[in-house]
């Protein structure tokens, strides 16, 4: 039996066992390795993707429950080589260090800013309660996100 998922605007099919975590299907079958596996328990946020527009931890979503849904991963954010405003702000703020948390950070923030276009610094920090960064100490990531809000 094959599952259909719409991944980054394209229909993809997976024969994976339906309890397989979505993140494994994205990475192993579709080679979308942007989403990272760090904790597999929903605390680090590195595997965050958007499922029908909502941010989810893709390590905890059985692929069977993502069938016929829309999945957006970090690979979808830039279009034709042009970074999204949020990605660009991260680059311009020199926010990136090891980089492992950014795919998840970006998806959490993208979804958050779509829902709350004019957040405060505290709102942004609260939105990141499920995204750990071990390198940067967060503030620059928050600065970058705020700069996008202010530019909009």
């Amino acid at each position: 039996m094959s599952l259909r998922l719409n991944v980054n605007g394209e229909d993809r099919f997976s024969a994976a066992e339906p309890l397989t975590p979505l993140v494994d299907v994205l990475r192993d079958e579709f080679h979308l390795t942007g989403a990272k596996i760090v904790c597999r328990e929903g605390f680090c946020g590195a595997c965050t993707v958007l499922l029908d527009g909502r941010s989810v931890m893709s390590c905890l979503v059985p692929v069977g429950l993502a069938a016929d849904s829309e999945v957006r991963t970090v690979e979808s954010l830039a279009t034709d080589g042009v970074l999204s405003p949020l990605q660009l702000a991260m680059e311009q703020h020199d926010a990136v260090q090891c980089g492992m948390c950014f795919p998840g950070m970006l998806m959490s923030l993208t979804s958050f800013l779509e829902r709350m276009p004019n957040p405060s610094r505290d709102d942004i920090k609260a939105a990141l309660a499920g995204n750990i960064c071990r390198c940067t100490g967060y503030e620059r990531i928050v600065d970058a996100a705020l700069s996008v809000v202010r530019a909009a």
Partner: peptide, 8 residues
Amino acid sequence: ANPAIRNV
């Protein structure tokens, strides 16, 4: 928990 967990 956190926002992405609350979504699910």
